[in-house]
Design a binder for these strands. Sequence first.
DNA 1: CCGTATCCATTTCGATACTG
DNA 2: CAGTATCGAAATGGATACGG
Lengths: 118, 118
Amino acid sequence: MQAPVVHDEKTCQVREILDRVGDKWSLAVVNELGNGTLRFTELKRAIGGVSQRMLTATLRNLERDGLVLRTVHPVIPPRVDYELSDLGRTFLQTAWSLMNWANDHAADIIAARARYDT
Amino acid sequence: MQAPVVHDEKTCQVREILDRVGDKWSLAVVNELGNGTLRFTELKRAIGGVSQRMLTATLRNLERDGLVLRTVHPVIPPRVDYELSDLGRTFLQTAWSLMNWANDHAADIIAARARYDT
DNA sequence: CCGTATCCATTTCGATACTG
DNA sequence: CAGTATCGAAATGGATACGG
């Protein structure tokens, strides 16, 4: 007799991954790094509206998940480069199609909300 | 002279949309409804691991955003059907490619995390 | 059956101050 | 420059109870 499996293990993993890499700032970071290597401050400015705290946390997670490579140059002042890993680049196409979808249908969605709120 | 625009309006909208439709339960719902119409309880069972509260909230948001159609049948006991709208179906391909990516690279990511945590 | 309402613990996140 | 540390407000989400 087996203890009941409440929900599929793999499915749960996939959901957790989607929640991480699919979040607002992760997508923004991957998008920016899709154009090439950037430093912390360049990323922050390029994305816009992200706090230092959130950008740091997002980059740490992406690095931990193997999507982003972090290179520290031992100079003063410090210089840290961020770039997509091979794994990160496999995500680019998907990320872009997601962002394109949102961009293409933003007006529809805003309109749908206005209708619903009436 | 113009007040400085902190961050692009449209970009911000797109991010907000991505955060909504790209979240864990929204993707799960869209995925399930991709196979056809389902009732509330069927959805809940099909997804697994989602609380009634979260499923309700997720469905409301998707309905409000115009991705999901909700049909109430005035019978006792109540019967409510959920299905994708045309807009919702335009999202299916993207959602699936996202889920496939996560599924295909889950092992890589888990491995990367294990390496990082050492 | 399909919700809503309430409570409560946990998490999230911006702001701020500080460091090598 | 590129962070870390800390604080407090706000949002999130599970559990539970209740209603049409």
